[in-house]
């Protein structure tokens, strides 16, 4: 029982770290307007994971990571190729790559289910995520990789900031833009792959952008936004994992529901940019204007 509790604590810790990392990285994804590319990458990871499983023969987070990272890269390259060389627009290109890669993943998944026997149960969890299914070594890998990602994001923070907001300026002052874009892409792929097992393919992209979008309502400064997005992500991760463990519901959807609740709260009640404060402000301004108008009319009469 005691052992179980320690495992549960580890699951919570790793979910918090995962939320923190994906919130922080998601901030840049959101600001670079790449939310749907994150979605495509998460779906495209599935065939990579299946191929890694077929080649290696058993469940191994490291090989899954390599496989998913490779197919994630291939998917992004395909999207860029289609957009650059045909008249098909980016949204359709993302849709094509996302659905075809995922279809391939499903084909491979059914192949594995039929040919490799009962070994596959670990892979099916990748669809919707199951924090409870994380074993001790998974949790270790998850914790270590997310900590590394958080450190990389913090170290390159200033550079990421410049390339996100003003690419031309960054190029002008000699920042290696394409290298840094590559690093950022690597971080996105990594966090998607690491998160798959906990949150699942379908909803991983939401863990990237929803906390960041919520954080956007509270501040105008990137530093605070990144930090806040991380905190929101961590909060939803822990809350989702907690409810998932007691209610036997997949973790991914719960995490996303909590994250969306945080977003809705921010959207409505954030001090400056929230909907309520906007309405109140408009009301106050209108009143002021009416008073001014009234005074003006009186002045005319006098």
């Amino acid at each position: 029982m005691n052992n179980m509790d320690i495992n549960v604590q580890w699951v919570f810790t790793s979910m918090a770290l995962l939320g923190l990392a994906s919130g922080m990285i998601g901030t840049f994804v959101l600001l670079k307007k790449q939310s749907l590319i994150g979605d495509a990458m998460a779906h495209a990871a599935l065939p990579g994971i299946c191929i890694a499983f077929l080649l290696y023969g058993q469940k191994s987070l490291l090989f899954f990571f390599i496989g998913a990272a490779c197919s994630g890269y291939v998917a992004t390259a395909c999207i860029q190729f289609i957009v650059k060389h045909t008249r098909i627009k980016e949204d359709a290109a993302i849709g094509i790559v996302l659905s075809v890669f995922f279809g391939l993943g499903i084909v491979l998944l059914t192949w594995i289910n039929q040919h490799e026997g009962g070994n596959q149960s670990g892979i099916n969890d990748f669809l919707f995520g199951k924090a409870a299914s994380l074993t001790g070594s998974d949790v270790n890998v998850l914790a270590v990789t997310t900590i590394i990602m958080i450190i990389i994001t913090s170290v390159f923070f200033k550079e990421f900031k410049i390339i996100t907001f003003d690419r031309a300026f960054a190029q002008g002052i000699g920042v290696p833009v394409s290298l840094l874009n590559g690093v950022l892409m690597f971080l996105i792929v990594s966090v998607v792959v690491v998160g798959l097992q906990a949150v699942g393919v379908v909803l991983m992209s939401a863990l990237l952008i929803t906390p960041a979008l919520a954080a956007r309502y509270w501040t105008e400064k990137l530093e605070w936004m990144t930090l806040l997005a991380g905190v929101f992500g961590a909060l939803s991760g822990v809350a989702g994992a907690y409810v998932s463990l007691i209610a036997y519901v997949p973790t991914g959807p719960l995490v996303i529901i909590f994250a969306t609740a945080l977003f809705l709260f921010s959207f409505l009640f954030a001090p400056k940019r929230g909907l309520c404060s906007k309405i109140i402000r408009r009301h106050v301004e209108r009143k002021k204007l009416r008073v001014k108008q009234l005074m003006y009319e009186r002045g005319e009469q006098l």
């Binding site: 939310s35 379908v202 952008i209 959807p253």
Partner: peptide
């Protein structure tokens, strides 16, 4: 717009799955 799509459908889908 991309984020609006991303937030709305993931949330509705998540509620459906739960």
């Amino acid at each position: 717009s991309d984020a609006a799509i991303g937030v709305v459908f993931t949330c509705l889908f998540a509620i459906g799955v739960v």
